[in-house]
Nucleic acid binder design. Structure first.
Lengths: 215, 215
DNA sequence: CCTAGGATCAAACGCCCGTTTGAAACGGAC
DNA sequence: GTCCGTTTCAAACGGGCGTTTGATCCTAGG
């Protein structure tokens, strides 16, 4: 528990940036160690293998990220906050990653957004493992606020919520490109657009019902 | 224009499946040619390079796909159809890919959903090129039906529409996993859930306005 | 029948990958 | 000063990659 973790941290930072930039598979250990200014063998010494490095890169950020989401959800539950607040608790911590100081951190949101659909099975496994309990708690919070919706429909809609968010964090360039620079996924207003759109979607009547219909 | 295109087609089919399964980068030409039952050198002979093969795999499907989307949008425009119809024209052709006969085709939706956030820049370039005009026409169709929304907000929301759809086609397993099999992204009902959720989101009042407010 | 040209083939090319190795450098404990 | 566990290092390992090559097969046209 000393400050010896120098090489480890340098590796995690370099890997985070290069994973985000080129993908986990395409970022070579040679490129990572060179950027970190350490020897090639350091990865296998400190993390056992490339997969160990991948796991460490994800764990380092996802732990605190989920903790923040869940503690904000706790607050929200005490105050019996509206759907909008639940969405903010879910989304804002991720969007804020994009505006934080260290360069690698900023890239992590992009990396994470992409990782849901990663072809690499190990990466996907890491994501489902690390995010599982958090996802379930948010799904419950939404279900409690939308008692008229069947459980299956809650899950569908939460899937869409996650999709819109992941798309925004991982393909922000696309939006910037099509809007010719007018919309920037890194702006604080992204949160407001997401919350407005998604809360309206969540509040829609159940599939098969007319507008204003009842359960 | 004869039936000589045997090897080419076999390569496209094999590549499509393996690209979807393992990613463009991780699918090797050796694996692709072996699955296609052709010689390794056939890729470079018929497509010039691996990138040529990638382009061909995408072009083969995206062309007809966009044509179907646009002709359905045309119909919809004639009848002055509602937002729901525009969404169906945009989404259904993609979801139907998942239920079509050839195995590779079924995988293509997954491949395409993932390709928006591909680290490989060439793949992303192919996507923006091939989808650009279609995207713009749909954005206009939505703008005409939501005249009270600023143009920027239309673009934000269309981005979320695309995100929810892409997430559904590329990470359906995730939804199936978290719902313990209750929700299957390949089911026809996926379309109904998407349209219900997304049309409600599109109809939300502009950011910063109260429910029921006017432009 | 012969031939020219497209299509296929096995084999090799050079390169980069993740990992391993064994030695060197370091830094407290005694 | 010596020792020992930790950390760093240059070098090499085997293997897979995309691509190239030159020979061989096949077939339509003269």
């Amino acid at each position: 528990m000393e400050i010896i973790a120098d090489t480890r941290e340098a590796l995690l930072d370099a890997a985070e940036t290069l994973f985000a930039e080129h993908g986990v598979q395409a970022a070579s250990l040679r490129a990572i160690t060179q950027r970190a200014g350490v020897n090639l063998a350091a990865v296998n010494y400190h993390f056992g293998s490339k997969e160990g490095l991948v796991r460490a890169v994800f764990s380092r950020r996802i732990g605190p990220l989920n903790q923040e989401r869940l503690s904000r959800l706790d607050e929200c539950e005490c105050r019996e906050g509206a759907i909008e607040e639940v969405l903010r608790a879910f989304i804002e911590p991720v969007l804020r990653l994009r505006r934080e100081a260290p360069e690698g951190t900023r890239q992590f949101a992009r990396l994470m957004g992409r990782s849901f659909s990663e072809p690499n099975e190990e990466v996907r496994a890491i994501m489902t493992e690390e995010l599982g309990p958090m996802v379930r708690r948010f799904a419950e919070a939404l279900a409690r606020r939308l008692p008229h919706l069947p459980r299956r429909e809650i899950l569908w809609r939460f899937h869409f919520v996650a999709g819109a968010m992941a798309h925004t964090t991982s393909c922000g360039d696309l939006l910037e490109h099509y809007s010719e620079g007018a919309c920037r996924a890194g702006d604080p207003e992204a949160l407001e657009h997401l919350v407005t759109f998604l809360s309206a979607g969540l509040r829609a009547p159940a599939v098969g019902e007319k507008q204003g219909g009842e359960a």
